[in-house]
Amino acid sequence: MVKQDSKSLMIQASGLTHYYGPYAAIEDVNFGVERGEVLGFLGPNGAGKTTTMRILTGYMPPTRGKVTLDGFDIVEQSLEVRRRVGYLPETVPLYTDMPVNSYLKYMGTLRQMPPKAIKRRISEVIDVCRLGDYRSTLIGKLSKGFRQRVGIAQAILHEPEVLVLDEPTIGIDPIQVVETRRLIQELGREQTVVLSTHILPEVSMICDRVLIISEGKIVAEDTPENLAERLKGSEQMEVEIGGPVSQVLPALRALKGVASASHQSSHGKEIYTIQANEGQDLRDEISRTVIGAGWSLLSMQTMGMSLEEIFLKLTTHEEL
């Protein structure tokens, strides 16, 4: 086995394209993942996340393009690649008629781990995934959240260098979601993790870097913080003020740092939407102006753009 360039990135994908019949699931996708990095693929359903994951794990070859993982070509040296990858598919693949520990033992044998290592690792991953009380329970009898844990347990069993998790928190209850995320963060300290999700807060919580993928193409790539920053542009506020509209509106517009202000009444409330220039905090200024003029300040709310909105913006309108 010849490693191609061992010092470079852990995963390097170039020109990745996959067709299902005439339909391109992903088209010309390029990305790299550094060792020890946690990379998140973010995109709506059908964006091509699962296709990308399946290619990375050697489940299917790309129609075009090339991927190397730890220097091994994903098509030519598929077995080497598969030895280094732990994979949790979107539908957690479990043999429902096997107990947890037999299942893990089977997976260990398939990954060609030495029997001693299998035994040691099974008790380790059972601890890590907190499955201690269920080691001899039939998988079919476990709840969704526990099945997810078993799925993660099998993925990390052979201490893979790369962990690929496809929608790891889908369909489990909120408490388990938090636990699963914590687990992934812990794993991410030692391993390279590639995960996909359509839940925004998840990426900002777990990932070092995010690739936003839409309709089979990567539309943005950055750290979660930078992405938020890049798209922030201006900040929006909603203020409810008691006072004559004809006077309030010009007064607001006259304030320094206000880019624009508009008014609307709803249910007898006078709501002003104020667009601030970048990086300006206007709350102080506005409250003083309103009180000073003898009007009443009834409510004030900043509408900082959430990642969710960024996401909508990214995947529905423009390209960066």
């Binding site: 489940y59 077995l79 080497e80 994979y87 539908t91 957690v92 693949p93 043999y95 398939l110």
Partner: peptide, 14 residues
């Protein structure tokens, strides 16, 4: 049906 084929085919097994 169970999707476990995905596990088999991504394990280092021919």
């Amino acid at each position: 049906k169970l999707g476990t084929i995905e596990l088999l085919l991504t394990s280092p097994v021919r």
